[in-house]
Computed example of a mutant assay.
Amino acid sequence: MNNRVHQIKSWSKFFRPIVAGERSHELRRNDRDYQVGDILILREYDPEAGDYTGSACEAVVTSMTSQERPCAVSDEGLNAGFCILSIRVTAMTEDLGGRGVRRPASV
């Protein structure tokens, strides 16, 4: 299966800890059939301003928990239609500016 790229909105209170390395997961509605290996382009969104900030990062899905892929503790711990994506940031940019996400040389 080919890995897909998903451009998704990420509120500032979640986005900033992700790029700072303090958060490594996303709780999402699984309306895109996310899979391990998929690429997320997280675009920072400021809900108070009602607009995107211009900051973005790219992350790869490294693990996934859902009702179809339960954790070891319980298959009832997550509502149907939602998933927890473990992610690893692979690239960051302050302003996409139509140029796409800059990748660090090590990726």
Rank of each mutant, 00 (worst) to 15 (best):
H6S: 06
H6I: 00
Q7V: 13
Q7R: 12
Q7K: 12
Q7G: 07
I8G: 00
I8V: 15
I8E: 06
S10L: 15
S10C: 15
S10M: 14
S10A: 15
S10R: 09
W11E: 05
W11V: 02
W11M: 07
S12T: 15
S12R: 07
K13Q: 06
K13L: 01
F14I: 00
F15D: 10
F15V: 12
R16P: 02
R16I: 13
P17S: 10
I18C: 06
I18T: 10
V19A: 06
A20M: 07
G21N: 05
G21I: 05
E22M: 13
E22R: 15
E22T: 02
R23L: 15
S24M: 11
S24C: 08
S24N: 14
H25Y: 15
E26G: 03
L27C: 08
R28H: 10
R28T: 09
N30V: 11
N30M: 06
N30Y: 08
N30C: 13
D31G: 06
D31A: 01
R32G: 02
R32N: 09
R32W: 10
D33L: 06
Y34V: 00
Q35W: 01
Q35S: 05
V36R: 12
V36F: 08
G37C: 10
G37S: 03
I39L: 13
I39W: 12
L40D: 13
L40G: 08
L40Q: 12
I41Y: 12
I41R: 09
I41F: 09
L42V: 12
L42F: 10
L42T: 11
R43T: 11
R43M: 11
R43G: 05
E44K: 08
Y45G: 06
Y45D: 07
D46W: 01
P47N: 02
E48S: 14
E48W: 03
A49S: 04
A49F: 00
G50R: 03
D51V: 04
D51S: 14
D51G: 09
Y52W: 10
Y52L: 09
Y52Q: 09
G54H: 07
S55F: 09
S55W: 10
A56M: 11
A56D: 04
A56R: 13
C57Q: 00
E58L: 12
E58V: 00
A59I: 02
A59K: 04
V60Q: 14
V60Y: 02
V60I: 11
V60M: 05
V61T: 06
V61C: 01
V61K: 07
T62F: 05
S63K: 02
S63C: 03
M64T: 05
M64R: 13
M64A: 02
M64E: 08
M64N: 03
T65G: 03
T65Y: 14
S66N: 00
Q67F: 10
E68C: 04
E68R: 10
R69K: 15
R69Q: 14
R69W: 06
P70D: 12
C71I: 06
A72G: 14
A72R: 09
